[in-house]
Design a protein around this nucleic acid. Structure first.
Lengths: 142, 142
DNA sequence: CGGCATCCGTATAGATACTG
DNA sequence: CAGTATCTATACGGATGCCG
């Protein structure tokens, strides 16, 4: 993995295949149960561990620690330890971390606009039970 | 669309908390192993089951079926059965499904630009082992 | 306070075999 | 061809307890 990926060159829409793989790859890293929520908690500036934990309802220490470590590892947040007693640790988004809010915001916008439709579709689907006559085309064109 | 969500009004950044929850919610629906890849396979127009399966390397029938059923349920794709022999089923993106490509593309763009940095950060992290002296601030300001 | 280790339940998804 | 059904492996995440 010594890079060498400067040669790929995705000119326009490229083939959706490659774009898809890249998106999937990023998704795989941020789509665990807490990562995005943690990013949200960090979005307002430096914040200490206990405060994050307080903001994210329902998260366990284990999951918060793991999530933060993952973010730190990927260069999305910085971790600053103050060796005081009692100890104190601050977390802060890096520039890279903040940049993630762009696609995240797009996702949020989509949710706001289209999720109701999605849930409605799901309701409809559930009610007709998909077994009745979902979309059987009898007029075989070819 | 019974909506009633016209009342929320996210003026500017709103509070990141709510935006975060919405984004997380959408993420939860598209971030299984195959959904986005399937959307990618569907992106070029109507396509039949076997062709999708052919395009998505490594997917099992079970997973493809489950993924497509999920997409259909959420109103992101339509399923059209041709009761011929042998049977044939076409899948096609709905308008809702296509609209998802907007945030997905944002994600793709982010990946293209920042993923190398992320992987590099990960490499660095792995090499210094995060135990040496990652970021201990001795100058306690307050 | 912040974090790690251990144990354990559950959800997700792969392999395989069978059906209309 | 386009699924369904069953079994199994494993990754994710929660609860608890200990440590610097």
């Amino acid at each position: 993995m010594v890079d060498t990926n400067t040669a790929v060159r995705a000119p326009e829409a490229s083939n959706p295949h490659e774009a898809c793989k890249a998106a999937v790859d990023t998704l795989a890293r941020i789509s665990d149960k807490w990562t995005v929520t943690a990013l949200g908690a960090l979005s307002e500036g430096p914040i200490r561990y206990s405060e994050i934990r307080h903001r994210i309802e329902g998260i366990s220490q284990r999951m918060l620690t793991l999530t933060l470590k993952g973010l730190e590892q990927d260069g999305l947040v910085t971790r600053t330890m103050y060796p005081t007693i009692p100890p104190r640790v601050d977390y802060e988004l890096t520039e890279l971390g903040r940049s993630l809010f762009v696609p995240l915001h797009a996702l949020y916008e989509w949710s706001r606009e289209n999720r109701p439709a999605m849930l409605a579709a799901r309701e409809t689907f559930r009610r007709r039970g998909q077994h009745g006559s979902p979309r059987t085309r009898l007029t075989v064109t070819k």
